[in-house]
Amino acid sequence: MAALAEAAAAPPRAGAGRLRAVLPVLSVVLALMAVWYLAAIPMNAREALTAAERAGAEIRGGSAAERAGRSALVLAALNPGPAVAGAWTQERPRLPAPHQVLAEFWASTVGEEVWGRRGLVQSGSFSNRSLIYHAGITLGATLGGFLIGSALGVLLAAGIVHNRAMDLSVMPWAIVSQTIPIVALAPMIVVVMNSVGVGGFWPKAVISAYLSFFPVVVGMVKGFRTPDREGLDLMRTWNATRAQVFWRLRVPSSVPYLFASLKIAVAAALVGTIVGELPVQRGGLGARMLAGSYYGQTVQIWAALLMAALLAALLVWAIGALERRVLRAMGTRP
């Protein structure tokens, strides 16, 4: 790795700087990949050894029944050859190898789902195996819930800052609301809303709003309270109204806090939507993951997980980009 770094740093070209920035990230990714491939050997050892035994190989560690009681780590150590040979190619591995996940991801986004038999080109629409289709559903509910939740969070924070009764009463309830495990609450919200005829988008949006309002309340209360005594005194010398103080002083000072809390909120909104999709098999990445676990399709679960991670990265990046634009428009020192 050190030799690679030197070789990369040696040529004094314009690209060298960017490479130097990417290199640490790349090294971490490679290290994680290595750990992942190694972990797949014991994780998938049982299946690999059974398959090798059926094919006629001599397996140490006793009969199949005896092996069931022994540690997978020990079995892999006793039979390194067959364990490694069968670790990364199984159809339903306990831990799929990275290349299997990537292959599934490619197939269910572009490979099969655009150019394949049931793909976009042939059928004119995404199939229900398309991760793009499921990601679209999840993204819609996430954005809906995120917008509702953040708006609610900002409103509550404004209320808390301006009203002493709200200051004392809202925050404890907001904190209590977050101590209820969302996996317990989400099915209830889905069932209750479905029983009054509201399904699909709304229950998921409500769950993700429920998770995303909290970081915004906490962040924005702090943000609205950043103006110091001198700033507020200055406003008082001009006999400014509370509304003027709010819009001209509190709101602009809270902008950095707003974006910090929005980044947390959008990630929470995504989690909320996925949890909300678990009990209802009507599309979305959550539904896709649960379907994968019903049928033992671990590769499918991991591909959906990868999609969810990419979606989260995209959302957080988008908020970061918006933040940079807003701060630049506000004349912040570059």
């Binding site: 001198e230 200055l234 406003m235 010398t237 001009w238 400014a240 003027q244 001209r248 004349g331």
Partner: peptide, 26 residues
């Protein structure tokens, strides 16, 4: 008009915008 020890200018407003602030409020 009150002048504090710290200039207390709003960083998101230009100098012009800062001087205009009390006029906007009034």
């Amino acid at each position: 008009g009150y002048v504090f020890q710290a200039a207390g200018l709003y960083p998101w407003r230009t100098i012009e915008g800062n001087v205009r602030l009390p006029l906007e409020i009034m």
